[in-house]
Design a protein around this nucleic acid. Structure first.
Lengths: 148, 148
DNA sequence: CGGTATCCTATAAGATACTG
DNA sequence: CAGTATCTTATAGGATACCG
């Protein structure tokens, strides 16, 4: 990439970070990606306090990444659940890329505690940088084409 | 994905967020990915204050994502520069995925202010979730295979 | 179970002024 | 140009107690 000048006031990365860039939001989105749906599970599995869990889940619903709904398992009483919306599912590349970098560079002794595989073939799931024509794009082979 | 239980104390995503998960760190990594190398440019283009820019650049050097070096342009005096290390280059999928989500869901009127294209063919650069066998992995077609 | 209310601390981040 | 020093504010986040 080259180095275009100018202040990036309206960069969509900055807007994304303002919306869902806190540690707590990203941990909750990680959990949602792993299939967690209930309030108490979100709180325990992320290690977040209940007030923070409540505040951030509400923000993620407002931001359109999660949807809240009642559901009832057979023979059980009504419970609440939080599920990824289409916009929330679109966030999976971010979560995957974070896990991939962490596994490679922020690893704990004994290897990564979570592994994700393709259901079809069993191979590890990763985030790849490609162009829309399908070519892999290694670092240095991309250019900024437009800067407003 | 299914929903495995248990607290994820040692999740590498959490470790990654603790290391480089602040808004300021991620904005600086965005700039480094766009080719920015000099202190004053990092500060102006991210909109961060100079003290915050200095603190976070030092953290990113300590964390191994940036390397600092002197350099001299022909006929100029010695300057400092910050460049992505191999670990920093490995962070590009995260930045790409954040930009992609922001362009789609946190967009500003008039379209994204920055566009990145493949140098080889001109097509847009995106982050894709795939398995290491090369298959695209849409949401719901991955499974957690290991949880320690 | 699924939260809310209240209070507290730590840190993210900016403003301003200054230095080699 | 590339920072540092100092101070202040805003927010992230936890602890504890409580509610329908």
């Amino acid at each position: 990439m080259d180095a275009p000048t100018g202040v990036r006031e309206h960069c969509t990365i900055a807007a994304t970070l303002d919306l869902v860039g806190s540690r707590s939001s990203l941990l909750l989105l990680r959990e949602a990606a792993l299939g967690t749906r209930r309030f108490a599970d979100f709180a325990v599995r992320t290690g977040l306090s209940e007030p923070m869990t409540a505040r951030r889940l509400a923000e993620l619903v407002d931001a359109g990444l999660l949807a809240r709904a009642d559901y009832r398992e057979p023979g059980q009483r009504v419970r609440q659940e939080y599920r990824l919306t289409p916009a929330g599912l679109d966030f999976l590349p971010v979560i995957t890329a974070l896990r991939q970098w962490g596994d490679a560079h922020a690893g704990v002794p004994g290897g990564p505690p979570i592994a994700v595989a393709h259901a079809g073939c069993g191979a590890e799931v990763v985030a790849e940088v490609r162009c829309t024509h399908g070519h892999p794009v290694p670092p240095g082979e991309s250019v900024v084409t437009h800067l407003r």
